[in-house]
């Protein structure tokens, strides 16, 4: 795959039953893995926030974010390359696991 990176999608949504599976379905359709998913009330009264971490190309992530935003109950959706801090954490943990596996050999 061309230039895959970890992206973090942020979506601000109405608090609507079924929206989680509806958004997850967009990833299922394209056989994309969700690496992390958080859903919680945002600081805006009555609006929820989705944080979705996924590995993707830039072209694909653009299409996915637009399809998320197309949902009637989604207010806005954005994406960014996963921030350096979580990349560091990610690298730290994956390196840690590799080391553990070495020890286990």
């Amino acid at each position: 795959m061309e230039d895959e990176k970890l992206y973090e999608i942020t979506a601000y949504t109405e608090n609507q039953v079924g929206l989680l599976s509806s958004i997850a379905g967009i990833f299922t359709r394209r056989s994309m893995n969700i690496e992390k998913l958080l859903v919680y009330p945002s600081r805006i009264e009555g609006i929820h926030k989705f944080k979705i971490l996924t590995r993707s190309s830039e072209k694909l992530i653009q299409a996915v974010v637009l399809q998320i935003e197309k949902k009637v109950d989604v207010v806005k959706a954005f994406y960014e390359v996963d921030d350096e801090r979580s990349c560091r954490e990610f690298d730290f943990v994956s390196n840690f696991l590799k080391e553990r596996e070495e020890i286990n050999k």
Partner: peptide
């Protein structure tokens, strides 16, 4: 029915 139709409808609501 909501689960089944959410990927193929513009909006679905119970």
């Amino acid at each position: 029915f909501i689960g089944m139709t959410s990927p193929i409808s513009k909006w679905s609501y119970q």
